[in-house]
Each structure stands twice: as structure tokens, then as C-alpha cells.
Design a protein around this nucleic acid. Sequence first.
DNA 1: CATGAATGAGCGTTCATTCAT
DNA 2: TATGAATGAACGCTCATTCAT
Lengths: 190, 190, 190, 190
Amino acid sequence: MKLKDEGKKRAIDEKTLDIVFDKGIAGIKMAVLAKDVGISPSTLYVYYKNKEDLIVSLFTTIIKEQMTISKNENQLDLPFKLRLKKMWLQWLHFGVNNYKEMGFIEQVKQSPYYVKIPSKVKEEKTELGVELLEEGKLKGVIKNIENELHVAVISAILSQTVKLILSKELSLNEKNSDKMFSFVWDAIKT
Amino acid sequence: MKLKDEGKKRAIDEKTLDIVFDKGIAGIKMAVLAKDVGISPSTLYVYYKNKEDLIVSLFTTIIKEQMTISKNENQLDLPFKLRLKKMWLQWLHFGVNNYKEMGFIEQVKQSPYYVKIPSKVKEEKTELGVELLEEGKLKGVIKNIENELHVAVISAILSQTVKLILSKELSLNEKNSDKMFSFVWDAIKT
Amino acid sequence: MKLKDEGKKRAIDEKTLDIVFDKGIAGIKMAVLAKDVGISPSTLYVYYKNKEDLIVSLFTTIIKEQMTISKNENQLDLPFKLRLKKMWLQWLHFGVNNYKEMGFIEQVKQSPYYVKIPSKVKEEKTELGVELLEEGKLKGVIKNIENELHVAVISAILSQTVKLILSKELSLNEKNSDKMFSFVWDAIKT
Amino acid sequence: MKLKDEGKKRAIDEKTLDIVFDKGIAGIKMAVLAKDVGISPSTLYVYYKNKEDLIVSLFTTIIKEQMTISKNENQLDLPFKLRLKKMWLQWLHFGVNNYKEMGFIEQVKQSPYYVKIPSKVKEEKTELGVELLEEGKLKGVIKNIENELHVAVISAILSQTVKLILSKELSLNEKNSDKMFSFVWDAIKT
DNA sequence: CATGAATGAGCGTTCATTCAT
DNA sequence: TATGAATGAACGCTCATTCAT
């Protein structure tokens, strides 16, 4: 339809993320959010049925965006390690650029709102290149253990790296990226 | 007169952790907490000045407990790798046994209550065996890079492992522990 | 949208004065006040930020009204005594007609709320015709002593007179007014 | 009987007056009062049945003290004006020395507790030398009008004088006392 | 679509009073 | 008598949501 101002909806989403980043999920107050957006509290309800709807919808939107990012340019004829590195760096940049979104997701997961998320969305785990991992195991270049463990390690170092960068303890440049990826590679390689 | 039941304070702390684990920090409702403990809401205020005091005090208590655990049996004449492993496993068990406490700490950190934590408590970072890392670098058995990065990797894998165990995706036995520690070791070793 | 009913604020003020007159300042209970006004307790907070704001604002409003009343028609070419009498009677009528407001002011002054009154408002003492007193002293018709003392006596008799009238021990008519003013005049005249 | 520690009761009364003087009657919090006295809250209830009992009893006690003071040394063979002056000064000193008690009385009178005061106590109006006034009217030295009006004027100037002294705007010495009494005398004399 | 006013449900907290020793 | 713990009954206030325009 698009009768409603789509830009306004985006503004609401953005300010919501800002608030959650600043004060946590409990900091979302409809009146404050409205003020931040520059609209009336009641106008919020034109775009979202209620607070829960706002949070659940935003959660779903973000998850879907993340799915999109992880799905592209999987196939190249580069060596395995390089392909994994490219992918990892892609996630790293995504994480750094979307830290507010990531924080929102994490906070919702430990809030009572999480039970309201449709299971369909919950199930959509970031596949995180499972195919790639399988290929690596077949080729014998990474440890032959459960994918979950590989995923755990890769994403653990990923999110810690993002945190270091955001807290300015680490600057995002090629040297540091290489350094951090070497942890990943050394951890999982055979 | 009635004697102050010290166990009651502990009961309050415990139920608080339960609530935060179940519903997040925003789920702490003084009335509900009181009911869970089996006392009157106003009795809570005999033990804590107010909600903020409850959260801040509990936070402080937990941090101090964590400090204690990380400080013992540092010196052995075992090989470096084994000593690091022992320490890592110790943290792993602590994390698994105190997952509610850990979750509480994490949630407070992203809540508005965090600014109320005395800076003294904030500064008490778990040193996490910095000395051990220095020694490893001197001996040339682990990468010669900033300690923060080593710490980041080690604790990243640690917390992911805890999560896997708690979510029953991984059971806590020697084989799995070894597997996960091998990630750690391979990641940081030279 | 609904338009803000300015009369509602006035109604809140009025009922507040009623309550303070009946039960004292400690008798102001937001829920009761709301019921008296015929609105929901939370609606009170649309008009006043909180209880303190209500009391302080009302105090300020009343003081400003009093300032207005004392400032008019100072200059006439009547004899001094007559001019003073006119002024005194004016205050008397004001006091009788605004006894609830006066009572409110007095009660706030001996309550912990008084420290919250902006000093600007506190400073605005009813000048109470200081100029007139000066003139009287110059002309030699009233005692040549500090204005504060004259003011003290004049207002002391004034407020006692108001009390007598309100308690029906004295009815407000010309004869009684004359009688009471004669006390004033005899007290201060040379 | 005197089984209970009479000194402790006096301490309670005194601290109550202090509190009312500092914060008003609404400032009486049983727990705070107990702390001020240096006893446990529950001990208060050994001496007074409840808060109302405390306030009503203290009110009654003070009123009775005031009665006592006004009743002595009425008859002298001094000139009328001098006798009135002596009495007025006596009251003035009483007022200055017992300002906390006076303030307490005034505050109770405009509080909901006043309806709980036994009417017997309420009726005990400080006679304030009615006999003396009658004598003055008979001798033709003071105005021949209702005693209530004389009393009103005399006590009005009295309480204003006390206020001036307490607020340090006027110091309590013979000169100032004379000045203020001259207002009284000039006001009521024929 | 947009809004500011209005509100009910509920929350954190206080406090006079009682309990249990 | 004396007390610290315990509590129920409020009270002030917040906030998601709806009303009325």
C-alpha cells in the first residue's frame, strides 16, 4: 500500500535502536520515542499496533536483513581460507556497521518479548556458511567436528572483535582484521 | 525482638537472579520478587534501600565473588599449556555453575543501572591470568600480541562454550571440554 | 484531538485550596484531589509535573495575584488617615474573600515545600504601602519608627480581624470595620 | 505511677516539637522521631498509644502549661497600664521562650488532628486577663468595646512581636518591648 | 493521517503500627 | 520495658494505550 509515510516508520525504527543502545530495552518509552521521532505518541500507533508489535516487527526486519547479507557471493574459485576470510570480514564489517541492530537483537533475546517472536523467525539461524564449513571439512583443511562448534568459535571471535572495535580498543584496519582472523583460522584449521 | 534472618537476604538475591534469568532485568518487579521470596513487599526495603540498591549491591557482590575465584592456585610447575587449560576449565565450570549470575552481570551492563555502579567495582576487571599470558609470550609458546586480544579470544570461546552447554547443545564432559579448549589453544599458540 | 481545558487547571487549584482549608497541607492526596475535581489521578500529571509542582505553582500564582491587588489606586488627594483606611479596608476585604488562599500561603510557609519556592517569589513581599507609611512619618501623623513595626501592627490586626470575621465572631459591616481600623490608627498615630 | 521513664517521655515531646518546628506537622515520622530520641520505634508506643495520641496529648499538655502561666500574680496595686504591661511582657517572654510550643499549637489547629482534641481542652481559651480588661473598661482607661476585640488586638501584636524577635528583625530588649507595648496601649486606650 | 488530552492498571516506595523475642 | 523485624494500607507517580477531534 504505502499510504503511511514509510520514512516515518524508518525514523521510528531508528530512534528505537538508538534508545535501546543508550538505555537498554527497558528504556523504550512510547512517549519518549515519539518525542525523539518528532511525532505524537498516538501517531506511533498508526505504524505499529502496540509496543510489542514494534519490537517484534523490528526484530523480524533486522533478522531478515542479516539473512540477506549472509547469502551473497558464496561461490568463488579462490582458495578456501581466503573465501572464509572474505566472508568473515564481510560479517565483521556488517557487525561494526550494524552494532545497534545487533545489540537490539541480543537484548530482545533476553527479554520477555522474545517469546512473542514467531518461531519462524527464531528458526532462521544465520546459516553462517555451513556449506563452506562442510567443504572445508571435506577438503581436510578445518577440524572435522560438529559445525555448531566451528560456528560458535567463529562467531565468538567475531562478536568480541566487533566489541573491541566499538570500544575503540581496536581500530578497524587491514592489519588488525588480519590479526583477528588469524585467531579464527588457527582455531579451526587442522 | 525478631532477629534478622540473614538467609532472607540470600533468598532475595537468589530470586532476583531467577527473575532476571527468566524475564530479563526489566522483569524485576518488587511485588513479584517479594511474593517469590515469600515476604511482604515492604520487607524488601528492610534489606535493601530500594530497587537500585538491590541491583547495585547484588552486582557488586557477584563481581567480588568472581574476583575470588580467579585468584587462586596460579602457580604450579606444570607445563604452560596445561596450566592455562586448568585455569580455562576452572572458568568454564564457574561459568556453567553461575550462569544466572553471569547473565545478571551482562544485563546490568546494558541497562541504565550500570551508571550507578561505583567505579571501583567497574574497574575490578577480571585480570584473567594476564601474568600467565605474559609468561606464555616470554616463553614463545603463544602469539606475541596484545593481551587484550588474547583475552578477547579466550573469553569469547569460553562464553560461547558456556552457552552451548546451557542450551544442551553440548554436554559438559572431558571430551567436549578438551575439544573446546583445543580451539582456544590453537587460536593463540604460536 | 482533545483540547486542553484551561478550566480544569483552575478546578484543580480550587479543590486544592479547599482541601488545604479543610485538612491542612498534609491533607493533599493526589488521588483524593483528582476525585474531587472529577478526573483521573493521572490526569493531574498532565497539568502539574508532580505534587510539589502543584503546590509551588499555586503558591506562586497566589502571591502574584496578591501583588496585583496591593498595587492599585495608591494616590488620592484625600487626607492621610482616610487613604490608609481605604487601603486597609481593601486588604481586609481581600483577606475575607481570599481566606483559603491566605491559609494556603501560611501553611506552605511552615511546610517543607517552602524551601522549594523560588527565591524570586519569596522576595516579592507585599510592600503594603511602604510609601504611604513614609509619607505619614514625614507629615508627622504616624509614629516615627521603623516601617517593619508599623507593618507588623497593621497586618497583625488585619489578620486577626479576618479571623474574627471568618469565625463569625464579628460580622463584616461598616461599624465593625471602623472599630477595628480605629485600633490600627490609634496604635500607629502620633 | 512513674514506672515508665518519665525523662524519656519528655525527650519524645521535645524532639516532636523540634521536628514540627523544622518540617511542620507533616514531618512527624514515627521512625524518625524514635531515632532522634535515641529509642526504637516500637518503644514510642510504650509511651503513647499511637501517633494521634502523641499529638493530642502533647497539645493538651502545652495548653495546660499556658493556662498556668497566665494565671499568676494578677493582683497588684500598681497603676492599670503598668499591670497590663507587666502581663503583656510576661506573655511576650513566654512566647519567645516557647516558640516551638506555640508553633506546634498553631499547626495542630490547622491539621486534621484538631478534631481529635477533646472539646474540654479546646474550650480552655487563654482568658488573657479578661478580668483585667473589665477593670480597665470600668475605670474608663481602655475602650469600652467587646473583650474579644481587645484580646484580638493585644494578642495580634503580641504574636507579631514574637515573630519579629524570632526572625531577628527585632532584638528582645527593654526599648523594643516598650515600643511594641506602646502600640498595644495606644490601640486600646481611650 | 495526525494529534494532545485523558486514563486505568500497575509499580516503587513510605510509614504507622504490630509481632516476636 | 525495650526492641528490630515485619507488614498492610496507602500514596505518588509512570506509562502504554485510547479518546475525541
